[in-house]
Amino acid sequence: MLDIVSGDPDELDVHLQLVERDISIEGCSIRVHCHCLTVDGNGRVRPQRLAEFMRSAIVDYAIPKTRLDEARARDLKFKSGSAVSALHHEALGAFTDLSNTGEGGEMLLFLLAERFLKLPQVLCKMDLKTDSHMHYHGADGVYASVTDDGLLKLYWGESKVYGDVTAAIRECLASLAPFLNESDHEGSSRERDLILLSDKADLNNPTLTAAFKKYFDRKSSMSNRVQYCGIALIGFDAKFYPEDGIKAVADDIAQAAKDEMKKWLKNLETRISVEKLETFDLEFFCVPIPSAEGFRDAFLEALGLKL
């Protein structure tokens, strides 16, 4: 499934500095990763540049992989860029202009899932929206991998970008928990997404997609070979970024984040216990930023949606 992962992973390093990865919490099946914003040669952090980088990847995020490849093939045939350009505008139209949008966090989760963890997205909520002013009720994307012995690991995605780290952790895990620990039945939180996966999953290869969909066929024994996992991202205000006009030092920011990690991990451990998620495989991204509100504003502005 690595063949369908999109984008250049090295491009992440231009905008996000890896501080820690694969941190474990005793008694939990979790790997925690921390990224901070990078510092440029003038000692500045640039959330606007991160937002513009995210904008450049919206087609990868919001358009099914088969449609994107068909557009690329058409452009190559006719020596044009119009087909992919049309998809870019279609993708833009799917994003909301609401000031409290969480779609920036959802897209940042996508970029880290695919480019950092090499977990391909197999269901994107943006392709399912019928109204750009409405939020899709379901997971913030679904990602997948297959183990060597044929077990499908299905990662339900959830992201929260809040000013307060405690609230971000609490709300993120509370939203993720039903997708993992509810029993399988027609009224479960994940049921709608499972139905969509059986119908709309797109691995950009008809044979591979057909094999993948077997995992969601209740008449197939393959449906017993699915393991539910979680992938989550929290963005939150961090006071260790310097104020405007004061030069930032990348090493100082990284060290401050490492010092704060102990508190974040303790909070995570508590909330994992409250939500009864200890036994589930979780990938968890912590992305401290200068301002959650500023991040949302920068994302909307980059997309041309800020009123």
Rank of each mutant, 00 (worst) to 15 (best):
S175K: 11
T101D: 13
A254D: 07
A86I: 01
T147E: 13
L18R: 08
I195C: 08
H135W: 10
M261H: 12
K200P: 03
K160R: 14
V146N: 00
E301F: 04
G150I: 08
T207D: 14
E260A: 15
L176H: 06
A211W: 12
A144D: 03
Y143A: 01
E182M: 05
N100T: 14
L50E: 03
M107P: 04
Q121L: 06
P288R: 01
C229A: 03
N267G: 15
E70R: 11
V39P: 02
V287S: 05
I253H: 08
Y228L: 15
Y136P: 06
R271D: 12
I272C: 11
D148E: 13
G27V: 06
G150D: 13
A201Y: 05
D40H: 10
F110I: 01
V146C: 00
D75Q: 06
E20T: 13
S85E: 15
D252P: 07
L76C: 02
E103A: 09
F285I: 01
S220A: 13
A201H: 02
K239F: 09
D199T: 14
R190Y: 11
L108I: 07
S273K: 15
T166I: 13
M261Y: 07
H89P: 00
M1A: 02
V274E: 11
E186H: 14
L98H: 14
H35Y: 08
K219C: 03
T147D: 11
L152Y: 00
K125P: 02
L92V: 10
Y61K: 03
G141C: 10
G81V: 04
C36P: 02
K160G: 08
S145D: 08
V5N: 05
E191H: 15
N42E: 15
K219D: 14
K65N: 03
D202I: 01
R31P: 00
G245W: 05
D259A: 06
D97A: 15
G104V: 11
H15I: 09
L111R: 04
H89G: 00
L305E: 12
L208V: 15
R21C: 04
A174L: 12
I30C: 05
T130I: 07
P242W: 07
E275L: 02
P242N: 09
I25E: 00
G294I: 08
S221L: 10
F280G: 01
C172L: 12
L305F: 13
G187I: 03
S189F: 07
A210D: 14
L173Q: 08
I289A: 03
G93K: 12
K266W: 02
E275F: 01
P64C: 08
G294R: 07
D140F: 03
F295M: 15
F295H: 12
L76I: 09
G230A: 12
G102V: 02
E269V: 01
K306A: 10
P242Q: 11
L282F: 07
N224T: 11
L128M: 06
L117R: 04
V5P: 02
L87H: 01
N224L: 14
E103Y: 12
